[in-house]
Design a binder for these strands. Structure first.
Lengths: 220, 220
DNA sequence: CCGGATCCGTAACGATACTG
DNA sequence: CAGTATCGTTACGGATCCGG
């Protein structure tokens, strides 16, 4: 059997890659996964998570001391699915958007995840910064280190260099370049702590125009 | 809805990405697709092909004059799924092989397709060559042009620079580096027309050790 | 309250037979 | 040989129910 078919045996069933996408944003609890994948039955989610654990893609872990809740997280092997998700996202960004539930189900952190896949390498090379973003009810952070840009759910575990807050519509415009960070801040559509320069750079890294283009796959 | 979910709406159902993988090897007839995906019912195949045409991924075409048979082929948009398949193949190559049906269902052209994804760019840059390979009953050809390596089913439409013939086991060893092309030819395990140098280069391009490593996704 | 196992009606599936 | 129709089986989503 060919490698592609073997992959699809593990991650080809319905919902599976969406679970992986969710876990690329960091460890998640069962209820958070259910909330993010609201059309999925809780029994299916349990079955998928079990299958992913059996395949060594996902691991169940107990959060330390004060939290003491169990979370699911990607193993190193599962983390290597990141290029697959990035490629699918780049391809899907060319697909027409079905307007019915679009804005209702849209999540800024997923947009940021897709945009981060194509952050210009010449910008990220020497960067070591963390930005925390509050978009509507969502909180996530973006860390640029060692030439890669990672988007994760929740507040930053370290004190961020930048904290920015806006609504979802403004976030869309920022990410698509319809509005500049400078103007969004000036017009009061974004609240920024940490300086205009960092705010501008954050959305150079999260530029959706780049993500919409074809991503190239090269030997590591 | 996020781009990943939109992609999976189109290509996330069972068999769909395997159809795309098949068509990456060139246009195929209905019966050839059925033969390659033997566990798939003919009704499902028809349904999937219809869905892919509706989504603009696949196109039905009538082959010109003497042939006059209809084939399915990828559109330009569908061709852009190539990175997705390559990433899945690279990831799946780390997965354990189920021995039950392994050798029975193994196809050299699929191995070649996966290997071609990671051909060393420094080798392919200035190349303009075509190799035709006969492995068991399979015939396919590899063309290296404009810095990219393409694997396609069937004999080469142009006179190839190299023609090589071997059995599947030898092909495996060649592609994994277990045997050198020089030795395979010397020991009579491969029949080569076109020169030893080209034969050696062909399997530098189709080196599975490269494909097994992580592929990187970079902005185009 | 949360993880996740069980039950049930519906939709998708694989195999096969059939039609143009 | 491409594509459709039928049928028994499996996978699914939603709701409900238990154990911690």
């Amino acid at each position: 059997m060919c490698p592609v078919a073997r992959s699809l045996d593990v991650v080809g069933e319905r919902w599976t890659l969406l679970i992986v996408r969710e876990l690329l944003l960091g460890p998640k609890r069962n209820k958070d996964l259910l909330a993010a994948l609201s059309a999925m039955g809780s029994n299916r989610l349990a079955a998928r998570l079990q299958g992913l654990q059996d395949a060594g893609v996902v691991r169940k872990r107990m959060l330390p001391a004060p939290a003491e809740v169990q979370v699911y997280e990607l193993t190193e092997f599962g983390e290597r699915l990141r290029p697959v998700i990035y490629c699918l996202g780049a391809w899907g960004s060319e697909l027409p958007v079905k307007d019915d539930v679009d804005r209702g189900a849209a999540r800024a952190e997923l947009i940021a995840l897709g945009a981060s896949a194509a952050s210009p390498p010449e910008l990220t090379a020497e960067l070591d910064e963390t930005y925390e973003l509050h978009v509507g009810e969502e909180r996530f952070h973006v860390s640029a280190r060692h030439g890669t840009v990672l988007v994760r759910s929740g507040p930053s575990p370290v004190v961020p260099d930048l904290l920015a807050e806006c609504d979802l519509a403004t976030f869309f415009e920022l990410v698509t370049g319809a509005i500049t960070p400078a103007r969004a801040a000036r017009e009061g559509r974004a609240r920024v702590v940490g300086g205009q320069a960092l705010f501008t750079r954050a959305f150079q890294l999260l530029n959706y125009k780049h993500a919409a283009r074809e991503l190239r796959v090269v030997p590591a």
